[in-house]
Design a protein around this nucleic acid. Structure first.
Lengths: 337, 337
DNA sequence: GGAGCTTATGTTATCGATGCCATGACCAAC
DNA sequence: GTTGGTCATGGCATCGATAACATAAGCTCC
C-alpha cells in the first residue's frame, strides 16, 4: 500500500527494479553492468523489470561516491571567427563519449582574462574531471593557475599555461607547405598575414613560413598581423595592396584571406592574376566564394579527440601524434606574370 | 591523528570546513548560499576556513538528493553548414548558466534518425533536466518520442515533434523582408532557393516569400531546394543560370547564396548587374566575400537564450517573444537593367 | 514576567549506485 | 567427511549537501 504511493512520486531506482525482479539491488547493478557472475536467467528477469518499470540509470550516486564527475569541460570562443573549430567540439565529444564521459561547455564571448577565469571557475565548480581549452590564453592569471593545477587541462592550439598540457599540432608544417607551394609556382617572395601572436598556431605557422623562405635563401619580409577575422584581413590587405612588388601572400586563415582579397580587389589587383593567395583551414565556403581558395586543410576533429586521449590517458609525457596537414589547390594561386 | 591521515586522501567537504570554523555543516551551507540568518562574524569564519582548506563546492549530493541534475542537454549538428548556429550555443549556455544550469553537448555527424536517437538517449542517460535541439528532425521515431515525453524538450528552428515545443521564430518575416526589398528595387519576379523542407525555418521563409509575391499580385514561380550547403546552392544556381528571365533570387542562407553566385558567374551572369541576390543569416564572411551580400540578419544568440527560458520557465503556453530580423543592404542587389 | 516572536545555530534523515564483505550452494580433491 | 575453491547473490556502509525539524538565546509588548 505504501508501495503504490511512494512509487508514483519518483523515478524508479535499482531497488525498485530489484523488488520487481525478486533480487537484491546489488544483483541488479551487476546484471546491468555486465558482470560475469550473474545467472543468465536472473539477468533476463532484471532486464524485463527494467523495461517494465521504465528504469533509467542514475549516475549521481556514482559521482557522489567516487568523487569523480565523469564530465569533461570544454572552453569555446563564441566569436564566429573560428568556424573550423566546431570540428574540435565534435572530436572532443566523440572521444569523451567513447570513454564514458560527457562534455560540458563554457563559452566566452571574447578573449579576456576575466571571462576566461569565469569560464574555468564555472567548470571547476561543476566538478569536471578535466578541461579542454579550445581558446587561446592571452595572459595567465593566478586563479587560472590554481584551477589548472587542480584539474588536468589540455589546450588545443592555444597559448601555453603552466599546469596545462598543450597539444602539439604541426602548424609549422602547414606554413611550410603553403609557402613552398608559392615558391614552386615561381614567386620570388612570399608575404605573410599572421594570426594573433598569442596563439601558438599563429606563431608556428609564421615560423614555418620564415623557415621555408630562409631555406630558399630569401630575405624574410616583415609579417603583418590580423586577429583571424575577415575584417582584420581586409585591413592588412589594404597595406599589401599599396606595395607593388607583392605577388604572393600566405594568410594564416581562410577568413582573413577573403578580407585580404577584398582589399586587393578594391585597389585593382586581382587574385590570382596579380597576387597569389594561400591560406589555412579549408572552411566549406573556401571552394565557393570567389576566387576559390588554395588552402591547407587540417584535421580539427582529430585534434579534439587527441586532446581527450591526452587528458584521460597516461600520455602525459609521450608526445601525441601530430595531426596531418594537406594542401588543397584551387584558383587563388598562379605563376607570377 | 586519524584526522591527519583521512584528510589527505580526499577533497575537503563542508564537514571539514565546519570543523575548521567551529560550526556545523549546515551553517557552512547557509553561509555559502547567502542565507540571511547567519551572523556576519560566523560567515567570515566560514569563508576563511573555505579559503584556508581550498574547499570547492560539490554539486553531486544536491543532484542525488534533489533528483535533478541541473544540466541541460544541447544537440548540435557537426556539419559546418550552420555557422550562425554557434551563437545558439552561446545563448543557451549563457541563459542556462544564469539559472544555475550547466550545458552538456551531444553532436551528431549528419541528419540521421539513428544518430539522433543515440544523441537523445545519451543525454537522457546523463539525466539532463531538459534538452535543446538545434538540429532538424527528419522523422521522429518511437524512441525519440519516449525520451521527449520524459524530458522537457525545445527545438530551435527545427521540425516539429510530438512532446517537444518548437520555438517560434518569425522566419516568415525574414522571407517577406527579403522579397519585398527585391520588389522595391523594381524586379518583376523573385525566384527562391529554399532550405530543406524538414526545417520549419526553411518552410517559413518560403511562405514569407510566397505571401509577399501573392500580395503583390505576382505569380509564384516554383521554388528550388537546397540543403543549406554552398554545394547545394551551386547546383540550384546552375539551373537558375539557364533561365534568362531570372533577375532576382531570394536564397534561404548566405552559404547557399555564395554557391548560387558561383554558378551564375560560371554562366557569365554577374551579381548584381544581371541578377540580384538576397539571403538570410549575415555570417561574418557575407561582407567580405565577393560580392558582399545583402542579407537578413537574425539573432541566434537570443534564440538560444529564449529556448532555455522556455525550457526552465513556466512559459509552456505563452508564446515566447519573436526574435527580430533586420535587412543589411550590401552589394548583391541592384535595380534590374 | 511570561507569551510570542525573531534570529542563529545544531541534529537527523535523505537521495541511490556500488565497493566490500558475508553467506550459502555446489563441486572436487584429499 | 572435511577442506578449499568457485559461483551467485545479499547486507551494509559510504559518498556530501541540504530540507525539515529542533533548540537556544535574545527581544518586544502587554
Amino acid at each position: 500500500m505504501t508501495e503504490a504511493t511512494t512509487t508514483r512520486n519518483r523515478q524508479p531506482s535499482m531497488a525498485d527494479v530489484a523488488h520487481a525482479a525478486g533480487v537484491s539491488a546489488q544483483t541488479v547493478s551487476r546484471a546491468l553492468r555486465g558482470s560475469p557472475h550473474v545467472n543468465a536467467e536472473t539477468r533476463r528477469r532484471v532486464i524485463d523489470a527494467v523495461e517494465q518499470l521504465g528504469y533509467r540509470y542514475n549516475s549521481a550516486p556514482k559521482v557522489l561516491a567516487s568523487g569523480r564527475s565523469y564530465t569533461l569541460g570544454l572552453v569555446l570562443l563564441q566569436a564566429g571567427g573560428y568556424y573550423s573549430r566546431s570540428a574540435v567540439t565534435a572530436g572532443v565529444e566523440a572521444a569523451a563519449g567513447q570513454a564514458g564521459y560527457s562534455v560540458s561547455i563554457a563559452t566566452i564571448a571574447e578573449l579576456d582574462t576575466a571571462l576566461m577565469e569565469k569560464a574555468l571557475l564555472k567548470l571547476s565548480d561543476q566538478g569536471v574531471d578535466g578541461i579542454v581549452i579550445a581558446v587561446p590564453l592571452i595572459s595567465v592569471t593566478q586563479r587560472m593557475e590554481d584551477i589548472t593545477r587542480d584539474i588536468p587541462t589540455v589546450t588545443v592550439d592555444g597559448s601555453r599555461t603552466a599546469g596545462a598540457a598543450v597539444l602539439g599540432i604541426d602548424q609549422q608544417e602547414a606554413g611550410r607547405i603553403a609557402t613552398q607551394h608559392l615558391l614552386d609556382l615561381g614567386h620570388r617572395q612570399v608575404w605573410h598575414v599572421a594570426g594573433p601572436d598569442e596563439w601558438i598556431e599563429a606563431r608556428q605557422r609564421r615560423q614555418g613560413w620564415q623557415e621555408c623562405l630562409a631555406a630558399a635563401g630569401i630575405d624574410v619580409p616583415p609579417p603583418l598581423q590580423g586577429d583571424w577575422s575577415p575584417e582584420s584581413g581586409y585591413r592588412q590587405g589594404r597595406i599589401l595592396a599599396m606595395i607593388p612588388e607583392v605577388t604572393a601572400v600566405f594568410v594564416a586563415s581562410d577568413e582573413m584571406a577573403f578580407g585580404v582579397i577584398k582589399a586587393l580587389r578594391e585597389r585593382g589587383r586581382s587574385v590570382p592574376e596579380d597576387v597569389s593567395i594561400v591560406s589555412v583551414d579549408d572552411i566549406e565556403l573556401a571552394a565557393f566564394c570567389h576566387p576559390p581558395l588554395t588552402t591547407v586543410r587540417q584535421d580539427f576533429y582529430r585534434s579534439g579527440a587527441t586532446a581527450v586521449a591526452v587528458l584521460l590517458g597516461s600520455e602525459h609525457d609521450a608526445e601525441p601524434a601530430l595531426a596531418p596537414a594537406s594542401l588543397t589547390i584551387r584558383s587563388s594561386t598562379a605563376a607570377p606574370q
